[in-house]
Structure formats: structure tokens, C-alpha cells
Design a protein around this nucleic acid. Structure first.
Length: 524
RNA sequence: GGGAGCGUAGCUCAAUUGGCAGAGCAAUGGACUCUUAAUCCAUAGGUUGAAGGUUCGAUUCCUUCCGCUCUCACCA
């Protein structure tokens, strides 16, 4: 008997009880409402394609089949002693005609216990209904899974604008419910499935792109003894047997570079990073990152590679290089501008000149114009040239970069793992890729001088001592690895979720993560 | 954490100035063997997120709490 469920309304219970009772009646007919063993030999979409050009007369003469399909019933139009049902499988949906005079009393009885949403198996021959739709005339009807809860909304096959608007209007709209019960969202909201198919195509494309260039995909630890690879607050967990705290990784960077030391001179990893920070439309605590490292390449080479990879990915995923995102059109076609950070600032702050980047007071005063809170203003007052430059970029430039744009020559202060520029030691051989005002990629020629790296680590430790929360730990083994020698290398990280957002016109990162993190439910 | 908004039937949404809580779909019973969002007849479905307050009367106004969304801050 059905176990009692808590926190359900009487209406909900009644709806479930009615469906449960139908399952019991199926048992009375000798049928298992959750039976196994029906193996469909065909797919709805294949049958529709195969007979797309066959006339009603041809089908009537040849009676192609028998075909067997299985899937979820998304629509029922009942006529008492006959009915049309629409069966949806992974390939598409096909209409099935069930008739009492064909199936007989025994074969027809389970159809009368059908609810929309149930899974069924059908064997039948193809014909065209009077309205011209390719349909299976059922010679066998098998209930496969009895569903106890209804689907929201109503299915329509119509693909004109009016039908789509109608379907959307009644689809599951409650945002929380859509994320919490993605399985319903996928069934109810048109387009959700397509978004996640596109996300998978994006990742598949990137893998094959890098594989073809001789990169080796690897997996490095997700549980780290030290905080490394990025400036972020980590999740802390505990290993009982070793009795040590471990950090969920915030970035795989130092492990991947150890592999370059070990001779894997083209490596990449696509996997999750975890950061214990705010949740927003652009932030999920676990997110997917591509990181790759190529020995003997420079950050200039990686700009070439990035442009080629992402513009080709855009075409592969969306069908074209011009992509609609909200109100904007993003052009992923090649020829992306490459602008030094200082130049990008000068382009937008007219009363600033190149010489002012030696004048920290001047930079602070410009930054103060857009510092709103007292805390912001206090932070500006203590900034050095590099920090103020980075802030000016965020304040005046970042949000304006709609089409893909590389920003280069980052200040050394906020690039603790990047190689210094040979001509100007105050900046690093680094770029970030911006698109729609957001950072999509971050890359640099790697710092492979162990002495310099050791000093930068010490700087991080001192910053932590001063109270800065997002700092890296001193990683002695990583210094040791560099002492064994890392060839000149360039490396890059690309936020896969954010790239997927751009290519699927998703306004929230939660729309491209199947099960985004939500506060656990206390009731309901 | 700050600010703004939202919460009504299983789903999508109404409810005039504070005046009987409604519709479509889904469901249930009935009719119907070519429908496409089937059609027709009938029925049932509610602690209006929770608690308190103002009022003759609260879905509506006030307070607190819970939850969600957006936004700012931190960050990718």
C-alpha cells in the first residue's frame, strides 16, 4: 500500500489516490503497473522521418510495420471506444490510434486506465489519419509505468508562434520549483532541454578541439590540503582517518602545472571548482571550469587559440557566429580586439593621460568618482597603482565590452601566478577575455621562476596576515616542482557555465546548470 | 549582509476604494471509433505562505516571521 506522504494538500493526495487506484486496477487485469521487459525496436522521430513522404494510399497498401515504440504519453484524446494518444520518446513524439475493435476487450481495458504522463509501449503499423498525420494503428498496447503525479500544463504539437506562446503560458513558471524539480521543468518548459543539449555540445566541441591539438585530458584532486590557484574563499571538509581538514578546490591550476613539470606539456581538465561565496545569476557555488596549459606557448598564442576555439564553438552550438543575447547581438566572428588595460581605460576616461599611471593620487581621485559606499571610498584611499588601475578598469570599462575583447597587461599586484613582462616588470604577460561585460577567460604566460614565485607566495601570506580573506597558501611542494623546472608555458581558464549562458541566451547561471544549489527545503 | 519586489486551487492566472475567493487547464462521473490545445453535459476542488494587529468586515491596510526572485557588495 502507498506510504503516507507528509506536507501534501488534500487535493494533491486525492489526485494521487485516483491514479494509484488505476494502478491497482491494472494489477486486477494481471498487469504490473511498473512492469519490465518491453523493448521498443523503433524511435518516434525515425518513423516520422522514414514515412515523411509516403501518401495515405501508399501506407494503406503496404501497411508498414509492425513497429514498436515506447515513451511517455503526453496527450490523450479519448472517444470512448477508441482514442488518439501522443507518445514521446527521446527522438520526438508520434501519435498512436488505439481502437477497441482492434485490441479487443482485454487489450483495450488498460488503455481506459491511462493518465497523461504514464509510460506505455505500443506495437502497430503506420498510416495517415484523415488530417494527414502519420500515426501508428496499435495492435498491442502495454502500460509500462503508472504515474501518480500530473504534469503541469498541457502538451501541444503545434510549432507556430501561437501554439508556442500557448504552451509557454501554462508551463511551470515558479522559478524555484523549476530549479528544484528540474525533471518537471525539462518536461514542461519548451527550450530547457535544448539549452542543456547545447551545453553538452559545447563541452564536446572543446574536448575534441583540444584533443586534436595534442592536449591530454586529466583529472586532478578536488580535495586540497592547501588553498591554491585563485583568490577565493574555499569550502572546508574533513578527512576522518587522516584527521585533517581539506579544502574543496577553488582551482586546479597548481596541479596542472605540476603535470607540465612532469612532462605532460599539453594538458587540460574540465571539471568543477567550488567557491564559498555569494550566489547570484552569475555565480553558483560549484561551477565548471576548463583549464589548459601548453608548454612553449605564450599568452599571445593562447589569444589565437581562444579566438579560434570559441568562435568555432559558437558556430557549432548555435549555427552561426552572431549570437543573440538578451537585447544584444554578440559577434563571435574572428578579429577580436586586443587592448592593454591602461589603453582601455584611457579610451573611456578622457581627462586621464598615460603619464597619470605613475600618479597614484590621480588614479585614486578618478576611482573615487564611482566609489559609492564609504567602505569603497576607504578601500580606494589605500590602493597602490596596480590596484587602482584594476579598479578603474572594472568601473569604467568592463561593463562596456559586449563583443569578445581581450584585455592585456594586467598589474602584477593581482596576478600572483603570472609571469612578469620583460619590458615592464609592473605588469604581467596576462589577458582576460570579456564578453557581455563579463569575464569569460583568464590566461597568462606562467611564472616558472621559483625564486619569484616564492616571493609572491610570501606576499600572499602577508596579505592574509593583514586580514585579506581571499589569499593563496604558501605551497612549498609547488616551489619544489618549479625548482625541478617548468618549461616556459602559457595557461588559461575558461568558465564553461558563463560561456554556455552566452551561447544559449540564458540570463541566469541556474539556467545552464541542471541542478543549481538551492537552500534545502524545510517543508513541502 | 544591504535595498526592491513577489507568495491566491495540482498548473497558469483574476478578484474594482477594505465588502459573498473566481476562470481556464488538469481531475471525477457521463456521451462519443479520425482527434490535433478534441467536443458536449454534469460534479468536485481553497487555513489566500505563517502568526499577530487595525476594522462591523482583510486576498487587499499595518507589524513580525518564513520562502523565493531581482539588485548591490564579495567573486568567475
Amino acid at each position: 500500500m502507498r506510504p503516507a506522504m507528509s506536507d501534501e494538500s488534500d487535493v494533491e493526495k486525492k489526485l494521487k489516490d485516483e491514479r494509484f487506484a488505476k494502478g491497482e486496477k491494472l494489477k486486477g487485469l494481471g498487469l504490473n503497473p511498473y512492469g519490465n521487459g518491453f523493448r521498443p525496436a523503433h524511435l518516434a522521430g525515425d518513423l516520422l522521418a522514414k514515412h515523411a513522404n509516403d501518401t495515405p494510399e501508399q501506407l494503406e497498401a503496404t501497411k508498414p510495420g509492425p513497429y514498436s515504440i515506447a515513451g511517455r504519453v503526453v496527450s490523450v484524446r479519448d472517444f470512448g471506444k477508441a482514442g488518439f494518444i501522443v507518445v514521446q520518446d527521446r527522438s520526438g513524439a508520434i501519435q498512436v490510434h488505439v481502437k477497441k475493435d482492434v485490441l479487443g476487450e482485454q487489450g483495450f481495458a488498460p488503455y481506459k486506465l491511462l493518465d497523461v504522463g504514464d509510460f506505455v509501449g505500443v506495437v502497430g503499423t503506420a498510416f495517415r489519419s484523415k488530417t494527414g498525420e502519420l500515426t501508428l494503428a496499435a495492435t498491442e498496447y502495454r502500460p509500462l509505468t503508472k504515474t501518480l503525479r500530473p504534469l503541469p500544463g498541457k502538451f501541444t504539437k503545434g510549432d507556430d508562434a501561437e501554439a508556442k506562446a500557448w504552451a509557454e503560458k501554462q508551463a511551470l513558471a515558479d522559478v524555484e520549483e523549476r530549479y528544484r524539480r528540474r525533471y518537471v521543468d525539462l518536461l514542461s518548459n519548451p527550450g530547457v532541454k535544448d539549452t542543456f543539449v547545447k551545453r553538452t555540445k559545447l563541452v564536446q566541441f572543446i574536448r575534441s578541439f583540444l584533443d586534436q591539438r595534442g592536449y591530454l585530458e586529466v583529472e586532478t584532486p578536488m580535495m586540497h590540503p592547501l588553498i591554491s590557484g585563485a583568490a577565493a574563499r574555499p569550502f572546508v571538509t574533513h578527512h576522518n582517518v587522516y584527521d585533517v581538514d581539506l579544502y574543496m578546490r577553488i582551482a586546479p591550476e597548481l596541479y596542472l602545472k605540476r603535470l607540465v613539470v612532469g612532462g605532460f606539456d599539453r594538458v587540460y581538465e574540465i571539471n568543477r571548482n567550488f567557491r564559498n561565496e555569494g550566489v547570484s545569476t552569475k555565480h553558483n557555488p560549484e561551477f565548471t571550469m576548463l583549464e589548459f596549459y601548453e608548454a612553449y606557448a605564450t599568452y599571445h598564442d593562447l589569444m589565437d587559440l581562444t579566438e579560434e576555439m570559441i568562435s568555432a564553438a559558437a558556430v557549432h552550438v548555435t549555427g552561426g557566429a552572431k549570437v543573440t543575447y538578451g537585447e544584444h547581438q554578440i559577434d563571435f566572428g574572428k578579429g577580436w580586439p586586443r587592448i592593454p588595460m591602461r589603453q582601455a581605460i584611457l579610451d573611456r576616461v578622457k581627462d586621464l593621460s598615460a603619464n597619470d599611471f605613475g600618479d597614484v593620487e590621480k588614479l585614486r581621485s578618478v576611482a573615487l568618482r564611482r566609489a559609492e559606499t564609504p567602505a569603497d571610498k576607504a578601500a580606494v584611499a589605500t590602493m597602490n597603482v596596480g590596484e587602482a588601475t584594476a579598479l578603474l578598469f572594472e568601473q569604467y570599462v568592463e561593463g562596456e565590452l559586449i563583443n569578445p575583447t581581450f584585455i592585456t597587461e594586467f598589474p602584477v599586484e593581482n596576478s600572483p601566478l603570472a609571469r612578469r613582462n620583460d619590458a615592464n616588470p609592473a605588469i604581467t604577460d596576462r589577458f582576460e577575455l570579456f564578453c557581455m561585460g563579463r569575464e569569460i577567460a583568464n590566461a597568462f604566460s606562467e611564472l616558472n621562476d621559483p625564486i619569484d614565485q616564492e616571493q609572491r607566495f610570501k606576499g600572499q601570506v602577508e596579505a592574509k596576515a593583514r586580514g585579506q580573506q581571499e589569499t593563496m597558501d604558501y605551497d612549498a611542494d609547488y616551489i619544489r616542482a618549479l625548482e625541478h623546472g617548468m618549461p616556459p608555458t602559457a595557461g588559461e581558464g575558461i568558465g564553461i557555465d558563463r560561456l554556455a549562458m552566452l551561447l544559449t541566451n540564458a540570463q541566469s547561471i541556474r539556467d545552464v546548470i541542471l541542478f543549481p544549489l538551492l537552500r534545502p527545503q524545510t517543508s513541502k
